[in-house]
Structure formats: C-alpha cells, structure tokens
Simulated assay, not measured.
Amino acid sequence: MANPKLFSVIDHGVAEYDMIEDGDRILIGASGGKDSTALVEYFGSRLLRLARHGGPRFSVEAVHVATEIGSPLAPELVERFRAWGVPLHTIDVSVLGRLKPGRKMNCWWCATQRRTELNEYAIREGFNKIALGHHLDDILETLLMNALQKGELSTMPPRLKYEKYPVTVIRPLCFADIPMIVRHATESGYISSTCTCEYQDNSGRKSARGKLDALTGGSYAEKTRLFEALRNVKPAYLP
C-alpha cells in the first residue's frame, strides 16, 4: 500500500538528512498535538515497513512531559500510540515549582523545562536520537524571528548533533508545512490538544507566522524554495 502523502514527504526529509541509521534508539517528544502525533504514526508505519521490506534497523518510543498547567494526553490518543506499536512514557514536571522567586511564568520557561526533561530522559535511558515535531513553517518562522529580532541568520536545523550530550536532535517534518499536516490529521481523525494555559504568550511566533504568510502567500513551493536558500548560500554576495 502506498504511503500517505505526508509520509512520503517525511521519508524525503529522513533520507536527505540521514535521520534514521542502523542501531538507532529514537525517542519522540509527544506533546499531544497534531505534529508530534503525526510523527508517532509515521514511525509506527516505518517499523511495519522495516519488518516487511528491510532497511536500517531501529527502535522507537515516545515520551510525554506532563506539567501542572498543561492538558494530559487524551485516552483515545494513548490508545492510538499503542495501536501504532510505539511505547509511550509520561514524565511529570512541576514547571511552576521550579520558577525562581520574583520570576513570571512564560512559554519560554515552560518549554525549556520540558526540553531539559526530554534530553535527560533520553540520555538516562540510552536513546541516541530525539525526534521533535517541528515542521517547515516552524523552521522558516524561526529564521524570520532570529533575523528580525536578533540580527542573525539561524534557525532549527533538521539534524543537530549536540556537542555536550550524546544525543542528536532530528526534525523529520522539516519538509512538511502546516496545511499538509492538518490535512493528514483531519483525514486520520486525530484528537489534537494544544496549550491553552493562562500563561501562554506566543505573540512573537504568531507575528512571524503572519510575516511568513505575507512573504510566501502560503505557497508550499515558495516555502520550500526559502528553505532551500538556506542550503544554497553564496558568501561572496553577502556583507
């Protein structure tokens, strides 16, 4: 049976950046949203293909970092993970309890604490790769945010080997944009949850998303060309 369109696009990113290698132990950060859920579904499908057709041998598990200000994974979603053959673990983290006196709770702090727990769990349990649900729009929005706010050309690389830690971050959705993921999640009937806590402030990300839409008109072709520009740098024609 042919792969869904999204899975074919993920396959392209995985192959382009050698994201899956023989002997890998991959840990997926599962937030409960459509992006990471699509990633779990993909890896479950990839394991089935491995059993039928061969390829790099790897194992995969998922972990959900739960906080006192976020929503738990829906039971229906947990059942989907089980059906896809991807073991799920949950880590409970008190992000409010870790907040220093006088500091205000915000999205950056929460994300930092959850990412720290994810990294530490991966290292402790012997995973060598962490798969995150960042997609093409996330990568391009981060590019615009860093350029316009920091004055630097940088973003989320599809594959990043940590210098200080024995893990590599991979972003298999690097060639998939939001509309593509939404279509797939809708067709698959995902129960998607997003953060609705009272502390969230993602105005910077929303502004960058608006700028990206204005720049590309929402065109997938133009988004991918902007992404390719990051791999086709002409230093002689830059300041």
Rank of each mutant, 00 (worst) to 15 (best):
E117H: 13
L238D: 06
G70S: 14
K164H: 10
T67V: 08
F43P: 00
T116C: 03
K206G: 06
T194V: 15
C197N: 11
P172I: 04
L136R: 03
L173W: 03
H184A: 11
I191A: 10
N232Y: 06
M145Y: 09
T224M: 13
T196V: 15
L230N: 03
A74N: 10
C107W: 11
V63T: 05
G126S: 11
S36V: 00
Y237N: 14
G13S: 15
K100A: 15
P239Y: 05
R231N: 14
F175D: 03
H134D: 07
A62F: 02
G33F: 00
G210N: 12
P179D: 07
R159G: 02
T116E: 07
G70I: 00
L173P: 00
G218L: 02
T216G: 03
L96H: 04
E163P: 00
L77S: 05
S207T: 15
E61M: 04
E222G: 00
P239F: 06
T216Y: 03
Y42K: 04
N232D: 12
G33A: 04
D22S: 13
M145A: 14
K161F: 01
R124N: 12
L6E: 06
L230S: 06
G210T: 14
S71P: 00
E76K: 08
A176N: 05
Y17N: 10
G44C: 11
E117P: 01
K34T: 01
R52M: 11
D177T: 02
F7I: 10
Y162C: 08
K34N: 00
D24T: 07
I130A: 06
D22C: 07
S31C: 03
V182M: 04
E79W: 04
G32E: 01
E163H: 06
E228L: 13
H134A: 08
D24F: 04
R231P: 00
I191P: 02
L47A: 06
F227P: 03
T216R: 04
N146D: 11
A30H: 09
E163T: 13
M180N: 02
C195N: 12
S45F: 08
P157W: 02
G189D: 10
V95M: 05
P87Y: 08
E41S: 07
D177R: 04
P166L: 10
S36M: 00
D24G: 09
S192T: 12
E120Q: 12
V169Y: 08
G33S: 03
N128F: 07
E16A: 15
D213H: 06
H135K: 10
D11L: 11
Y237M: 15
N128L: 11
R25L: 12
G151D: 07
S59G: 12
L39C: 04
L148I: 15
R80Q: 12
N106A: 10
L96Y: 01
D92K: 05
L50G: 00
V86G: 03
G23M: 04
G54W: 02
V169M: 08
T224W: 01
A229L: 12
D201F: 09
G217I: 11
A15I: 14
I170W: 00
E76I: 09
L215A: 13
S207E: 15
E76V: 15
S94C: 10
Y165E: 14
S71T: 12
K5S: 12
V40N: 01
K5F: 04
M180Y: 07
D213Q: 11
R225D: 14
M1Q: 09
A229N: 10
F58V: 08
R98W: 02
N3A: 15
D177G: 01
E222I: 07
Y17F: 15
S8V: 14
T142C: 07
